[in-house]
Design a protein around this nucleic acid. Structure first.
Lengths: 352, 352
DNA sequence: CTGAAAGCGCTAACAA
DNA sequence: TTGTTAGCGCTTTCAG
């Protein structure tokens, strides 16, 4: 019978190990630390005790003592969304590659929850907090996000916006974005080049920056050709399959005239495609269809979806690398990743 | 100029706050703790200091002192897989609901990595470690997993197997599974009831328990009807879209005779569907097709995929609830969740 | 090479 | 109501 729960398996401490090996706690610490010179006899005895007790140093205590495993946190709305999942994957991989632990939090769109979580991460002394995914760019958003940024910065941490609306200058944030407008421009230019002139746009929420960027690209591509799209062809909804389905069905019912449709996201495109099928329309025979995001499933639709590729994983990886590669003197960084069209089978020429 | 980085925003400690408020550290602790009686004058001064310094107590230190936020970890192969994502979502939501922080780790199938991570979680004193998703049930798997289970148990933590092969009796694990065989049985029975007699099975890896369960169901459904499926109709691959595509194309090229096909997963079904389309075959007109998992995208395929619903989110939620709801005396639990067929449009009657 | 002692940031038992 | 003193589990001077 020993004083502590030596054999019982419970959490044994460094002192238990020391006692069992007949040395001091410092010695155990040194053996486990690796670097420090220790006589091989002692080392053996200590290691044996460690094994016997199945001892693992408490990471939290190490952290307090200043030698913990660094941690990084990321926050997203819902890991179930394919593009979120891709970014999360990038974040997670890069974080572990750089030896960091990864804390996650789904907000389900709840702003309060997001705030609370960021505060917890500050308490955890997370090296950085990455906010993943789009949001509405309102004054309230900016104020709130700015507050989080300052709060983290003042605690020696860092806020990273990954695919989110930038804050004004002066905010201590790192932002990694991608080119929504450019991708949409290229995509719509491609469609116009196929001879289409009435292109329906199934957009997202009006105040969502991602949706806005894509819409701007749609407009710009028209203007670049001297075209002026019919405002009636610009529909708004959100980024879900249901929204695409509903919008498309409505357009069809209203007898809207168009030969191609561009959806704000691949999910929206999937919903629209279903509606098209239900109406007995052929894609791309009767109407062409394109999406945005290039989620893995885009290629599984029939016909395989022409869309815009967004380097989501890379976005996540870069968010981590940029945030962790900073020194206090590093100026705030703002990266913009490129996007490009992936031509598959859902867009055809007019009258073909 | 004060001694510490009071205004500079750096990490201020409870002592900084105490000094600024002219009280002792314990008083600050009590004010922040909430419960303890403190004169409202002091409380105000302390709160002011806290605000001025933008102070947040170090969660790691609290943890060492015995009052930390509990943490829970989950490990999966790749968050990008739709069913993994669903389970992760369930885990995450339930964990935060129960006030736990959530650590994640993707293993990318690397066993070493998984082991390392579990060890880290033991060091972090995670309340439980949830291993999510199927695996090959080899002797090596059992030994390794058993070791992890013992190691965690001996540290007062807990290993949870969520949708993974059970260990033999006596292992300190909680397992939450779902009924692979039952679902496959029901699905294939449904298909046979439509008059199909030659049903191709696009299976997964031969030693993967999930794949095995589904295959058993396929076989059992035949036998229940006094049928004896042609062994040539049993193909093996893995759980990817590519596997489904490859297998299907091969079957078609070899002139295999069948009127329906059951894929081991919806992903496999998606690949198979593409191959069928490429071959100019109509689904379900020429051949019927069914999947397994009921991932969200199953309904976006055309035709919408008939499949087996697996309550993945629920699985994740239950894993957490079961693991955290334990006392040391709780017997090891083993839950088996039901699955059911979701009839959509990809299966038709023979000759229809 | 090894041990004693101090310290990390916080809480809690004990006095006052 | 408040301050003092231990103590959580670990690391790291500082002396031998």
């Amino acid at each position: 019978m020993t004083r502590k729960s030596e054999d019982a398996g419970g959490r044994s401490t460094i002192r238990d190990v020391a006692a069992r090996a007949g040395v001091s706690a410092s010695t155990v610490s040194r053996v486990l630390g690796g670097e420090y010179p220790v006589s091989s006899a002692t080392r053996t005895r200590v290691m044996r005790a460690v094994r016997d007790l199945d001892y693992v140093a408490d990471a939290r205590a190490k952290a307090v003592a200043g030698v913990g495993t660094p941690t990084l946190a990321f926050v997203l709305e819902d890991i179930t969304g394919p593009s979120f999942a891709l970014m999360a994957h990038g974040v997670e991989r890069e974080a572990t590659r750089l030896g960091h632990l990864c804390l996650v939090c789904s907000t389900e769109g709840d702003v309060e929850h997001e705030l609370e979580f960021v505060e917890m991460m500050r308490a955890q002394r997370a090296a950085a907090v990455i906010l993943v995914g789009g949001a509405a760019d309102t004054a309230e958003y900016r104020a709130r996000t700015r507050r989080m940024a300052d709060s983290l910065a003042s605690a020696g941490s860092r806020l990273v916006l990954c695919g989110r609306p930038t804050l004004g200058a002066g905010a201590p944030v790192t932002v990694i974005e991608y080119d929504n407008e450019g991708g949409a421009f290229a995509l719509v230019a491609h469609i116009l080049a196929q001879g289409h002139r009435r292109v329906l746009f199934l957009g997202g929420k009006a105040d969502h920056t991602t949706a806005q960027g894509r819409e701007r690209g749609y407009l710009a591509a028209h203007r670049a050709r001297g075209l002026d799209p019919d405002p009636a062809l610009l529909l708004h909804g959100d980024f879900t399959r249901d929204s695409g389905h509903r919008l498309m069905r409505g357009a069809l019912k209203n007898g809207l005239d168009f030969t191609a449709v561009v959806a704000a996201t691949d999910m929206v495109a999937a919903g629209a495609l279903t509606a098209l099928h239900e109406a007995g329309l052929e894609v791309p025979g009767d109407v062409s269809l394109a999406g945005y995001d290039d989620i893995p499933f885009a290629r599984d639709l029939h016909p395989a979806l022409t869309t815009v590729h967004v380097p989501y994983e890379e976005l996540g990886r870069l968010a981590v690398r940029t945030a962790l590669g900073r020194t206090p003197e590093t100026p705030d960084e703002h990266l913009l990743l490129g996007t490009h069209v992936v031509v598959r089978d859902s867009v055809g020429a007019t009258g073909s």
